[in-house]
Design a protein around this nucleic acid. Structure first.
Lengths: 342, 342
DNA sequence: AGGCCTTGTGTAATCGATTACACTCCCGAA
DNA sequence: TTCGGGAGTGTAATCGATTACACAAGGCCT
């Protein structure tokens, strides 16, 4: 591939001048600029970003490590991050942790070696040595969707406590009392927070907290299915199953369908995370929707600020309840979506 | 961040020796190796991949440009590519073309500048200058899922002709005669091929080809919806709507639901692409399933072969029909999935 | 003992860009 | 005419790794 030297030689100038043309430096005659540009076009020259980065110590690239690329929540998040980053002049390198700490670390390592200018991380478990390295090595880092306690790292995430309270009230209003929650892993901040919010919402609504109705899955469909099976086999099965993410809802639905049960007549269903196809289920799924676009946008802004050494504060946005019909009919017109009881 | 010099100095050796330790060269005493390694750990040293790549002219990185990151088909594909690439020692940089040629070009450009060792491209439209550059510049390139005629570039893709024929036969057996197809853009090989296969399948089954029943969408949900609306407004609307990808199926479903029609009693529905949640629709969606994992795997192998200057041939895998219930009940037990009529 | 090979390590060139500094014109003011 | 200064360009150091080549030390042969 043609290098800056080839261009310089062919245009009869020095590499410095070519570099100046590349960087639109004002101190180049229009005549020279045009000649160099012509040679570039002729040779199909593209500057070597590797060499440039080595010199400038900036790759104009940020890393994004998501929990699971098959989870539409993360996919939408990646999309939002990508759009915002590109607008800010950065390219995004996506790593898929597949909810496995060692794979997360693999990507943290690779991306650090690639010298990304900053890292957006949806941490998959507890603090790992590599993540500490990243913090120590003072690479700008921002947590997204999930946090890790004990590290001085800003985070951008959504809080679903209010929405979960709205959901429990909604269920209560529909006459449900036995509500089960398939939570996420206690190792994840999102798992813990949602469980805590659920338990306190129950209490607040005067409902008993039954330990056998709360179990942690791993945010993947299979665990949603097996836990649902256990719940339905209980001597007194729950009237409602609320899942901690959209994949586990899918698993729950699998099990319910396999048993020939109907939603919501036999068992009601609700899910954390709202994804496009929830609307098309029968019945459409009541869900808690996170402001995914905003999360992505703000995370990139925060990271770019850190890269530019500007001060950054953590951000928490509210999630909101979207009532559909999977928990039973309200008195209203069924089709229209609306936010939860205010 | 610590560099190789810092390590060398602190360990009292030359940079060459440190480099040898990094590359597990055999000509280093165990004693020296251990000492250097200790210093590396102590400093939290990570080799600078940028510098290394500059010298070795290999980034151990491949680029993958997909059509649309919100489309689960591409998401699964990305997952498969990522897994296989990592197994082969490569990292994957994902670019989202969002089905827009200019954004595709943006990523082709960026990835070429980053000097990826090879490029996997799901081309979004016709040949663009940048893609030609890539071919000219002799960067290894492999087309995935879609091809571009007129370029000497190997491709890995699935052919759905047989599956589409199976589908039309299946529909015919269920008594349907008026079948509409919402195709993909004629600019894409996948769009053209599926349309051609559909038309010839109709003919083969002795069904008339009605021009007003075939229209190209853009592989996104909104177009599926608007074309469905047009089809249903026809004086003689089709009995079946077959969509060229899963997103347009979603759009079609939206429109059908909005009109209060039932599937398959009022209008039957089938889709190209099979995605996890098709099972959970009511009724479960009859679809044509592509061997996504295999496509991803083989594409990476082909690319790695090209990078290693080994000869590569294009691959075409068959897609297959998965009959569910969205086109009507067959005489069989409804729940079990099976391949099309043999 | 002298020559030769092997083994372990160091020296320095190199990859392709950026950029501080130096240099050469050329113009205008004194 | 001379001098100062700005505009345009070139020279060379630099970023952090890899690697060809050189070299020193030690072992073994004759």
């Amino acid at each position: 591939m043609a290098s800056i030297k080839d261009v310089a030689q062919r245009a009869g100038v020095s590499v410095a001048t070519v570099s100046r043309v590349l960087n639109a430096s004002p101190s180049v005659t229009e005549r020279t600029r045009a000649r160099v540009q012509a040679v570039m076009d002729e040779l199909g020259y593209r500057p070597n970003a590797v060499a440039r980065s080595l010199r400038t110590d900036a790759t104009n690239t940020i890393g994004l490590i998501i929990g699971d690329i098959l989870n539409p929540f993360f996919t939408e998040l990646a999309r939002a991050v990508d759009d915002e980053a590109r607008a800010a002049g950065y390219s995004v390198l996506i790593g898929n942790a597949d909810e496995r700490p060692e794979q997360q670390d693999h990507y943290v390592g690779t991306l650090l070696e690639q010298r990304v200018d900053g890292l957006l991380l949806c941490p998959t478990a507890e603090i790992t040595p590599l993540v500490e390295d990243a913090v120590r090595g003072s690479r700008p880092l921002v947590f997204l969707d999930r946090t890790l306690a004990g590290l001085d790292v800003p985070s951008v995430r959504a809080d679903g406590s209010a929405a979960i309270r709205d959901l429990v009230r909604h269920l209560r209003a529909l006459g449900h009392r036995r509500i089960a929650f398939i939570s996420g892993p206690a190792l994840l901040s999102t798992g813990r927070e949602r469980t805590a919010a659920f338990v306190s919402a129950l209490t607040e609504c005067g409902l008993p907290v039954r330990p056998e109705y709360v179990e942690a899955g791993d945010f993947q469909a299979a665990s949603g299915r097996s836990i649902t099976a256990r719940l339905l086999d209980l001597p007194e099965p729950p009237e409602v199953i609320f899942t901690g993410d959209n994949l586990m809802a899918l698993g729950a639905l699998d099990e319910i369908r396999a048993r020939g049960l109907r939603v919501p007549a036999d068992v009601a269903l609700a899910s954390y995370d709202d994804v496009p196809w929830f609307t098309h289920l029968d019945p459409p799924m009541t869900a808690i929707s996170q402001p995914v676009q905003e999360l992505g946008r703000l995370a990139v802004r925060a990271l770019v600020d850190r890269i530019g050494d500007r001060p950054v504060r953590s951000v928490v946005l509210p999630a909101r309840l979207v009532v559909r019909r999977s928990c039973g009919e309200t008195g209203e017109t069924g089709e229209s979506e609306r936010s939860g009881p205010e």
